[in-house]
Design a protein around this nucleic acid. Structure first.
Length: 282
DNA sequence: CGATTCCCCTGATAGC
DNA sequence: TGCTATCAGGGGAATC
């Protein structure tokens, strides 16, 4: 489930691989994920050149030289692959998730940008570049968790505004803090030794600083490892990320905490599984 | 306005 | 063994 580190991994790789290439045509086998419609999408991107790549929370933005931009959200199981004559037959692209490629943008240089998405929750949409930042799900994003703007002062203000919320729920609120999903909320809280069911108002100034630092650290480390793959996530080379080896609590219910060996518990917060160590986290 | 529920999908898993 | 019901999960929409 791509979160900020996985999306950043994709954006960084796309920046190196497809900028300056021209979009030639669109192929899709799942039209409802291509907006406004596949025909309109193709009409507005065809023959345009890719000039840059941006990330807003978990959204990917591909800017074109004709005042249009492609917005992509990978949601649960989406990932993007860049294939060219050199790498097309590489071992990574024999990955089983390749069978779920639902959309392909054919580019110049015999290159293709392929959108694989087993559960079909992901989408892509073409909008005018000038409308990107007012696109509703981008406009509503809070401070980006990996940006310099995410300071402990800003974080403390958010906790004050939503003081009655469980901290585990608040971390998932994209309108407050953009980029954290189910994996990294559990990991950050574990590193900060804070239980996910603590109310935001109960965190001390020291807790808030520690949690802000844990969020920054875990995201930075995950980006360095090209994200985490516990199932379908792949980078644009079709390779798995490496952060899953570093997980302390996520997806590890019943297994020992790496710090104290206590059995990790799973609970539901905000309709999602949250994992924590009942001994380390207070 | 905030909180909760439903929904989109389909592979994995549990239950029989 | 094989079939069926249930679950997971990002985030938008509908509902309470």
């Amino acid at each position: 489930m791509p979160e900020l580190p996985e999306v950043q991994t994709v954006v960084t790789q796309l920046q190196k691989k497809i900028v300056d290439l021209e979009i030639q045509r669109l192929w899709t086998q799942w039209p409802k994920s291509v907006r406004p419609t596949p025909a309109e999408f193709e009409k507005r991107v065809k023959h345009a050149m890719i000039i840059g790549m941006r990330r807003f929370g978990k959204h990917i933005v591909i800017d074109l030289n004709n005042q249009q931009s492609i917005l992509i959200h990978l949601k649960m199981t989406g990932h993007l692959l860049v294939k060219n004559p050199t790498n097309r037959l590489s071992q990574a692209f024999k990955d089983p998730y390749n069978q779920f490629i639902h959309h392909i943008l054919h580019l110049s240089n015999d290159t293709a940008l392929e959108f694989s998405d087993m559960r079909k929750f992901g989408w892509m949409e073409v909008v005018r570049t000038q409308d990107v930042e007012t696109f509703s799900s981008i406009a509503s994003l809070g401070v980006d968790a990996a940006s310099d703007a995410f300071t402990s002062d800003v974080f403390r203000a958010i906790l004050k505004q939503y003081s009655s919320q469980h901290i585990g729920a608040l971390l998932l609120r994209q309108e407050s803090i953009a980029g954290i999903g189910n994996i990294y909320r559990s990991e950050a809280l574990h590193r900060a030794c804070i239980r996910p069911l603590r109310r935001a108002r109960s965190l001390t100034k020291r807790d808030v600083e520690k949690l802000a630092q844990s969020i920054r650290d875990v995201l930075r480390e995950a980006i360095q490892k090209r994200g985490m793959s516990d199932g379908d996530f792949r980078d644009t080379d079709g390779r798995e990320g490496e952060f899953q080896k570093e997980l302390g609590v996520y997806g590890r219910s019943g297994k020992p905490c790496p710090i104290c060996n206590t059995s990790i518990q799973r609970i539901k917060i905000a309709q999602r599984s949250a994992f924590f160590c009942p001994k380390c986290q207070k």
